[in-house]
Simulated assay, not measured.
Amino acid sequence: MSRFASLWLLCLGLLLLPGCADQPGKAGSEGSSGSSPDGGDGKRHSVAFVTNQIADFWKIAEAGANDAAQEFDIDVDVVMPPEATAVVQKQKVEDLLTSGVQAIAISPLDADNQVEWLNEIAEKIPLITHDSDAPQSERLMYIGMDNYAGGRACGDLVVEALPDGGKVLLTIGRLEQDNSKYRRQGVIDVLLGRDRTAAYYQEQPDAWDPTDGEIAGDKYTIVATVTDQGKPEVALSKAEDALNTYTDLNAMVGLFEYNPPALYQALKKAGKLGQIQLVGFDENDVTLQAIKDGECIGTVVQNPYMYGYESVRVLNEILNGNEDVIPASKYIDIPPRSITKENVDEYWEDLRAKKGQ
């Protein structure tokens, strides 16, 4: 056999050896990590922004998430569970994981009871929280406001509406959420004249005021905290019932975005707008119009647009390998603002611009 033929047979044998066709660094080889900064195999990053339910509040956050998606050239799936339950929220997230989403930002519905589940997600992909935190979980960080500070700002509006004191009704979706507990407590502490912080309740877990029954102070009495499990129609029905039950009310406070409009409708139907003071939270159009018309003393707003934008920006950085985007505090503070008749026009104009209206 000639030297040329021998060399040819040797090369052919090498080519036929198992695995020799794979080259380091190419798809299918052990030298490939299976992922890349763009999501792997040339695909774009894919992240999800998960809310706790469907609401106008979250449509503003969706606008922020979509703007960030365009700016950073990644795919974003904004998921709003049709029911405000932990079961439905979990189903939506499991669907996202099955679809191959690479990172998730979520507003937990029941932080205390979702820790184990959140930890399971965090073991698989980067996980952050927004709007409502789950500090006991392995989430990487939280984006949102200090809900206790937001509650205190709302309490200040109640004091402005009732400087001489009075009887106050609090309404909110549910109290299982981390943000709900702190927001409600902030209002109560202002009305009872307490000088506390969110850290106080982290260090003193038995200091929370009971959720049932009356809470009385020297000037103000919280007659009840009414929950509706995130259902606007239930919020309206319970507001109407409260007006019949507590006939000497001086103020009604709505602590979720849809609560103030429900209180407004109940007060209007009962002919008590202006007689019973209305204090809100978040930026529903009904609430803002009531402020303009002098029928609502004011509302404390978050910045849902930035919740969406910052969540997408941070997840994109994490997927690009930039862990420095996570602060040492594991918290990006987006402070609340109080909106009253003096600044409602300016605020509403800016809000419409962000929503593309």
Rank of each mutant, 00 (worst) to 15 (best):
F4E: 14
A5Y: 13
L7H: 06
L12S: 04
L12N: 07
C20I: 10
C20K: 06
A21V: 10
K26V: 09
A27Q: 11
E30A: 08
G42K: 00
K43T: 05
K43N: 11
H45V: 06
F49E: 09
F49I: 08
T51K: 05
T51E: 13
F57W: 15
W58C: 07
K59T: 11
K59N: 15
K59S: 10
I60L: 13
I60K: 02
F72P: 07
I74L: 07
D75M: 00
D77I: 03
V78T: 03
P81I: 00
P82Y: 12
E83V: 06
A84E: 10
A86S: 08
V88T: 10
K90V: 06
Q91F: 07
T98H: 02
I104D: 04
P108R: 03
D110R: 00
V115W: 08
L118I: 00
A122N: 01
K124M: 10
K124E: 13
H130E: 12
D131Y: 05
D133G: 02
G144W: 01
N147E: 10
A149E: 14
A149T: 08
G150Y: 07
G151F: 11
A153S: 02
C154P: 00
C154Y: 06
L169Q: 06
L169D: 12
L169T: 05
G173R: 01
E176C: 03
S180D: 01
R184V: 03
R184D: 00
G186E: 11
L191S: 11
A198C: 05
A199F: 14
Q202C: 01
Q202I: 02
T211N: 08
E214P: 04
E214Q: 13
A216N: 08
Y220G: 06
V223A: 09
A224N: 14
T225R: 03
P232K: 10
V234S: 06
A242F: 15
N244T: 14
T245H: 12
Y246P: 10
F256H: 09
P260G: 07
L263Q: 08
L263H: 08
Q265H: 02
L267D: 01
A270S: 13
G271S: 12
G271F: 07
L273H: 04
G274N: 03
L278T: 06
V286A: 03
A290H: 09
I291W: 15
I297Y: 14
M306S: 11
M306T: 05
Y309E: 11
L319F: 07
D324L: 07
V325D: 14
I326Y: 15
I326A: 12
D333Y: 12
R337C: 00
K341H: 03
K341S: 15
E342S: 03
D345S: 10
E346C: 01
Y347W: 14
L351K: 02
A353I: 09
K354P: 07
G356V: 06
